[in-house]
Design a protein around this nucleic acid. Structure first.
Length: 658
DNA sequence: TGGGTAGACGCCCTCTGCTGGATGTAG
DNA sequence: ACTACATCCAGCAGAGGGCGTCTACCCA
């Protein structure tokens, strides 16, 4: 066997070419030396007792032995039992590693040669270091698992039934079959090293099947029989897939059942089983001539080639869709046209076209979340959601707005963004209970929840004793109180919106002036008026604001006076105009002109200070030109012959309330 | 053995709805 | 200026539809 003929690392089988087969009569001889005894056949359980510790899993042995009678065909039956041992030297190309324990012919040895990294090792059968191709056994096992050099003990047991080139069923060998014929005892054979204590058990099952037609060869597939370990393993991954093999479980007098050691597949038909085995191999002999992709079957290759050529032979009669396979077409028609949904949920009305969809749906009932995030506690019900969730950890934003290049984690988010930001005729959502129009449906839902939902706790109107259970009606109700002067004076026609304003007003009638100046004992009905008074007459740090007329440059202490002046100011006629309105001007400027004298010389003190306070308040509120407030003030005082202090302040407070 | 069919699995998509921070506005 | 509140907006997850691909099984 040349190097190129050696199966590569991806190959799972071992080829034995022109293997020297041992005739069954040799088995008899084998019994003599105690390697294999008739007793073993009759009492397979004895294997368990006599098996070297650690060579095989006892539990498995029992199971196998119960299930599988050993039925050897007439004629030749050959056993090859190989064992490997740890090497003493690592730097040898050919090393003696084992022996034929079944019938160790004189001088017959098994040699192993590592063909190189990633390449299978070679087992040589023959006398001495013979390297004849005819005597070569290629162990094509994944190197990471089965480098012979790494094994303490490895046992290959091969039964060849009815010759190498037999057709029909493959030569599957059960462990039990081999136990009938082979018995290994601890310490058997003088060259056999004892097993190391605590050594991990490694036992491999070798299945034999005919090789390529017309070629005289057997294909051996070697797999691990460490069943306990397999049970703990998840579904076979790429590593252990390569170990695919089979065990046939045959009950006495019953049909033979072939079960896959890699998955749970079982079959009573060897042809089905053989077909199944291929799914655990990477053997793909059918190459696409266009892209060199390999496929297991001609049908798969044909379907693949159709994807290159665009050939979709199965066309839908109801739409323009076409598919590569008939199954796709049938499913498409169910989804789009017939709406046939054979899979119905027993817990709700959901039905689906595909069983997998129903299975996924049922998780919404059971709460099952099989797909766990490795970075947080999140677990999802399907793989896609987990994949989508992982973007929250990676920060990946695969979706980009083609207009503003903003990036998004989900396509739906980007779609909404484009719709709301870059589209015309954006749909709006009208609230069915009020005039609100909201851009997003979800926000309309929030709106409905906050404003139009029934609240168990009563909400009180801030202006009256009314109570409400819906926030929207409360707000609408409170608006009715706006501009409503609910507080009416018992002594005059005055009315106001706030009670505190009425309290101040009533002092006009009672004459009460509770705010006294500490410096001059002058009393005021309002604290704010006292403050203005104090600043003006008793605070040396107080710097009165000066307002200049933009037309004539004249200074005013109050903005309202300046404003009033400037409205009628004509610099060219300033002299006559001024003289013509002497009284008015004097009144306007009375506080300034009279200095600290009583306001009786001009506008009433209350009126003047009220206007000043209003101005001050307006400035505090950030209004540079409180003209609007002033207009309100004027309107409020219009027609008042002698503006009352209380009334002025009430108006002021009302305006402040605004 | 190949073709048809059904089922399984995976991937990607859309639609939907909730959430919380940002922002605008009224009081 | 501050607060409360409504709306805007992006992030994120739930649910389900549709299709590509592959395997198992049946049958001619």
């Amino acid at each position: 066997m040349s190097a190129t003929e050696i199966s590569g690392p991806s190959d799972q089988f071992t080829k034995i070419k022109e293997l020297e087969l041992m005739p069954e009569k040799d088995l008899k001889e084998k019994e003599v030396d105690g390697v294999c005894r008739e007793k073993d056949h009759q009492n397979p359980g004895g294997w368990e007792a006599e098996c070297p510790p650690g060579t095989l899993q006892p539990r498995i042995l029992k199971e196998e032995l119960e299930l599988v009678p050993v039925t050897s065909e007439e004629g030749e039956k050959h056993i090859l039992t190989l064992q490997t041992v740890p090497f003493a030297s690592e730097a040898v190309e050919l090393q003696e590693v084992g022996w034929l324990s079944a019938q160790p012919q004189e001088g017959m040895q098994v040699m192993v040669q590592q063909a190189g990294p990633g390449l299978p090792s070679l087992l040589w059968l023959g006398e001495g270091p013979q390297q004849s191709v005819q005597q070569c056994v290629t162990i094509g096992i994944q190197e990471e698992l089965h480098f012979l050099q790494e094994m303490e003990v490895m046992q290959f047991q091969v039964v060849e039934e009815n010759g190498v080139a037999a057709t029909g069923d493959s030569k599957l060998m059960s462990l039990a079959e081999s136990t009938e014929l082979t018995k290994l005892e601890e310490g058997q054979g003088k060259d056999r090293p004892p097993m190391a204590a605590g050594t991990r058990d490694l036992c491999f099952l070798v299945e034999a099947s005919p090789g390529e037609e017309g070629r005289d060869e057997i294909i051996l597939t070697i797999s691990s029989l460490n069943m306990e370990e397999q049970e703990d393993k998840p579904a076979p991954g790429p590593a252990n897939i390569e170990e695919a093999s089979a065990t046939d479980h045959t009950t006495k007098g019953a049909k033979r059942i072939f079960s896959c050691d890699v998955c749970r597949f079982t079959s009573s038909r060897i042809s089905s089983f053989n077909r199944h085995k291929k799914i655990h191999t990477s053997e793909k002999p059918h190459l696409c001539h266009l892209c060199l992709k390999a496929f297991r079957t001609v049908t798969l290759l044909r379907n693949h080639v159709n994807t290159h050529t665009g050939t979709r032979p199965y066309k839908c009669g109801d739409c323009n869709m076409a598919f590569v396979t008939s199954g796709e077409l049938i499913r498409h028609r169910r989804y789009k046209h017939t709406h046939e949904k054979p899979f119905k949920c027993s817990m709700c009305k959901y039905a689906s076209v595909e069983a997998s969809k129903l299975k996924r749906h049922v998780r919404s009932h059971t709460g099952e979340r099989p797909f766990q995030c490795c970075l947080c506690s999140y677990a999802s019900k399907d793989t896609y959601k987990l994949k989508r969730h992982m973007r929250t950890h990676s920060g990946e934003k695969p979706y980009e707005c083609h207009v503003c290049h903003a990036r998004f984690t989900q396509s739906g988010t980007m779609k909404i963004h484009i719709l709301q930001k870059h589209s015309e005729n954006v749909p709006k959502y009208q609230c069915p209970h009020c005039a609100a129009i909201i851009a997003r449906k979800s926000d309309l839902r929030v709106h409905l929840r906050n404003l139009h939902s029934y609240k168990a706790a009563e909400m009180k109107c801030r202006y009256c004793p009314a109570t409400f259970h819906e926030r929207y009606t409360l707000i609408q109700h409170q608006k009715t109180h706006k501009n409503e002067k609910r507080f009416r004076c018992q002594h005059c026609s005055y009315a106001c919106k706030q009670e505190r304003h009425m309290l101040v007003h009533v002092r006009i009638h009672t004459g009460e002036k509770p705010f006294a100046c500490l410096s001059c004992n002058k009393c005021f009905r309002q604290k704010q008026l006292l403050n203005v008074h104090f600043k003006k007459y008793h605070d040396s740090n107080f710097i009165p604001t000066v307002y200049k007329c933009p037309k004539c440059g004249k200074d005013f202490s109050r903005w309202c006076n300046m404003h009033r002046h400037s409205e009628k100011c004509d610099p060219s006629q300033e002299k006559s105009a001024t003289s013509g309105k002497r009284t008015r001007k004097r009144k306007q400027t009375a506080p300034k002109d009279t200095g600290k004298e009583d306001a009786a010389k001009g506008l009433s003190e209350a009126h003047a200070d009220g206007e000043a306070a209003m101005q001050e308040t307006a400035v505090v509120r950030g209004a540079q030109f409180p003209g609007e407030a002033l207009v309100d003030y004027r309107e409020a005082t219009a027609g008042v012959e002698d503006p009352d202090e209380g009334m002025t302040c009430e108006m002021l407070l009302n305006m402040m309330d605004k």
